[in-house]
């Protein structure tokens, strides 16, 4: 069949195309020059060092972390019960509910930010941070429901039924039987949600206020001032952070099954 070499060639070329640019970013950040070049113009760590001294990067990193962590937690608090209900109950209007929860996936992000700015922030005095939190939660929710549902579907429902028959309460059955069995699915959903939120650009494009900017947006506005290699350095650092997270997730969870 398919020869070994063809297989390797195809995979090699595809991976070069997909991953090559990151090596260029990492190296461009190492440049000693004043602007981005490849090959780098001399080698220095000064741009990597500069990343940590830019105050707005620190603030926006904190905000992005906050949104990614608490947005995902909120999405899981809403999403796990919903996933449980969808896979275990025959709920009235089940399809409608599923459609509503999944809807954020197909709405262009830029519109979401704009809509929340116009109808929540301006007239209702929501803070920009709160609006961002709402938007990110709603955006992560469909992923949380999907991933958790799929791991719930792999779990046979007769185990809980047995537990209930043996005198366990419904809540007890959930926490003692279901939750331990879907915990890797929940963790996978958490990581997926975290990454989705952390890298989110379009939604946050219109949702920024004084001192309130997510990290990707802050990188864009930093680029409005200068294209110096520190943005490349920051991109590389964030990429490495993602690699570490994904590597750990893959190692402990077999994460790619859930994506």
């Amino acid at each position: 069949m398919y020869s070994k070499w063809t297989t390797r060639l195809i995979i090699g070329l595809t991976l070069t195309f997909l991953i090559g640019p990151f090596f260029i970013i990492i190296l461009a950040g190492l440049s000693d020059g004043e602007f981005m070049t490849f090959p780098p113009d001399g080698i220095s760590l000064r741009w990597y060092a500069k990343v940590f001294t830019v105050e707005s990067f620190r603030d926006s990193f904190k905000l992005s972390m906050f949104l990614a962590i608490f947005g995902t937690i909120a999405a899981l608090i809403l999403g796990v019960p919903a996933a449980y209900a969808i896979s275990r109950y025959k709920i009235p209007y089940g399809e409608t509910i599923k459609t509503i929860v999944a809807a954020p996936i197909i709405v262009p992000g830029i519109i979401v930010g704009l809509a929340l700015l116009r109808y929540l922030v301006v007239p209702l005095n929501f803070t920009v941070t709160l609006a961002l939190f709402m938007a990110h939660t709603a955006l992560i929710l469909p992923y949380a429901v999907r991933v958790v549902s799929s791991s719930m579907n792999n779990l046979r429902s007769d185990m809980e039924e047995a537990a209930v028959l043996l005198g366990c309460s419904r809540l007890g059955a959930f926490t003692r039987v279901v939750l331990p069995n879907i915990q890797s699915g929940v963790l996978a959903a958490f990581i997926l949600g975290f990454v989705t939120s952390f890298n989110q650009v379009p939604v946050s494009l219109f949702l920024s206020g004084p001192g309130v900017r997510t990290l990707p947006i802050d990188m864009l506005s930093y680029m409005e001032i200068t294209y110096d290699p520190s943005v490349a350095a920051l991109s590389a650092l964030l990429a490495l952070l993602s690699v570490v997270i994904v590597f750990m997730a893959e190692k402990f969870l077999g994460f790619s099954r859930y994506v």
Partner: peptide, 12 residues
């Protein structure tokens, strides 16, 4: 749109 963008383009 931005002079920073132009600077990058002229420097490269």
């Amino acid at each position: 749109n931005r002079s920073s963008e132009l600077a990058q383009l002229m420097l490269q």
